[in-house]
């Protein structure tokens, strides 16, 4: 049965996480995203829960190159369907025009979830078998949940 301590030890030993905060899930390197999911699946986190992407626009004068250019932060959650229902959440950061490895080959449920995040936030997944929009019509322009997308963007002739 997976435990939080085990998850913590895994991240510290194999994925170089040193900062832990009560309020933020651990942040790992984007290259390790797929590997971590694979390891966790082997360790019993077999229920795919969610992926959430959020857009952070670039900050002028920031020291970190990623912060200066703007990035997308993804949080992924997996659960173990055991008695304690342990939840593992981690974050990764990808640049706005970079791609992240898809989890579809591990979790079939990632298919639609990643399509949705692509549709709404505009994060691209490398190796996704079906990279279409999910919610909005195929010919839609822009990604509504980005910061620079106005909520009341018109869409003639309907609105």
């Amino acid at each position: 049965m997976p435990t939080p301590e085990e998850f913590r030890a895994l991240l510290e030993d194999d994925f170089g996480v040193s900062e832990w905060s009560e309020k933020q899930p651990p942040l790992i390197e984007a290259v390790d995203h797929h590997r971590l999911a694979e390891v966790l699946k082997e360790r019993g986190y077999t229920l795919y829960v969610f992926v959430v992407a959020s857009h952070r626009p670039g900050v002028e004068g920031a020291e970190d190159a990623l912060t200066a250019a703007g990035y997308i932060e993804l949080a992924t959650g997996l659960r173990s369907p055991t008695e304690n229902s342990q939840l593992a959440i981690w974050r990764v950061r990808v640049g706005l025009d970079e791609q992240l490895a898809t989890l579809v080959d591990l979790f079939a449920g990632a298919d639609w979830q990643e399509r949705e995040q692509f549709d709404l936030v505009g994060v691209r997944f490398a190796g996704h078998p079906d990279p279409r929009r999910l919610m909005l019509p195929e010919d839609w322009e822009g990604h509504p949940l980005r910061r620079d997308y106005a909520i009341n963007t018109p869409h003639p002739p309907w609105r």
């Binding site: 106005a150 909520i151 009341n152």
Partner: peptide, 13 residues
């Protein structure tokens, strides 16, 4: 009404 994907009332159509 103000959301990008919703039409503001069916009487527009």
């Amino acid at each position: 009404r103000d959301i990008y994907s919703v039409i503001p009332g069916i009487d527009t159509a």
